[in-house]
Amino acid sequence: MFAVSSIAVAQAKTVWVDDQLYLPVRSGAGSQFRIIENAVPSGTPLEVIEASDSGYTLVRTPKGTEGWVSSQYLSETPIAADRLRTANRQLEETRAELAQVKEQLSNVVTERNALESSEASLSDRSQELQEELQRIKSIAADSINLERRNRELREENQKIRNDLEVLTAENERLEASKEYDFMLLGAGLVLGGVLLALIIPMLKPTRKTDNWA
């Protein structure tokens, strides 16, 4: 219960009408004074203007009425019903905040899972790129080897062509020499034939004339 001071309150404070009451506000500090505001319900906050040792306190109601009420029905704390409503409201606010935190946590978990999935995809893509790079390097190496082999083949082909040209020239020379030899042989045979034609008649014995006939 509210303890009433015997001196005026230096600074205004708030008190509440106690549980399950409808407190009348009177024009003076006593039950003999007329009621100027009737049935202030329990839980109503009242601003203390002055306290006295008469058992009454001068207050100001939410409607702005200034009057005296019995101090024994005042409390320095809100009534249990108000405290319960406040506690329930705070509980609902806490539940709402908890639901919001859970939703934020769910979003964070979803984002984390998405990031992990994206990281896995990036890792797979990186592996694919590494394999593709290795394949390109292998192709490039094969291309270099192929180019070197082609160059070697071209050089060998050119060498074969050079050798073929030399052999062709040598063959032509031999053919020309062979024809020349045939010509010499033919000329020799002709000359030999002529000589034989001249010599053979000279080698035949001449017949003597038979003078005894």
Rank of each mutant, 00 (worst) to 15 (best):
T61G: 00
A87I: 05
Q130D: 15
V9M: 07
E131I: 14
G67T: 05
Q11I: 08
A80C: 04
A169P: 05
K137C: 07
I136G: 02
E116A: 14
Q130C: 12
D210G: 05
V194T: 04
T86K: 10
L91D: 10
A96R: 15
V9K: 06
E47L: 08
R173V: 07
E103T: 13
T86Y: 07
V4W: 05
L58H: 02
S106H: 09
M202F: 00
D18K: 04
L184F: 10
D82I: 06
G64H: 02
M202W: 02
D124W: 06
Q72K: 03
K204Q: 06
A81P: 04
A120N: 13
M1G: 09
Q130T: 15
N150E: 12
L105A: 14
P78N: 03
L146N: 12
I199D: 00
I36M: 04
N211Q: 09
L174N: 09
D124L: 08
Q72H: 05
K178F: 14
E155Q: 13
A10C: 10
R26P: 03
L21R: 01
G192K: 06
M183K: 15
R135D: 08
A96V: 11
E155W: 09
S75Y: 05
R173M: 09
I136C: 06
P62V: 02
A99W: 08
A51M: 05
N145W: 13
L185W: 12
L23R: 01
A169S: 11
E172T: 15
P78F: 01
Q11A: 10
V69N: 03
N88V: 05
S70M: 03
A12E: 15
T14H: 08
L167N: 12
I200D: 00
A120R: 13
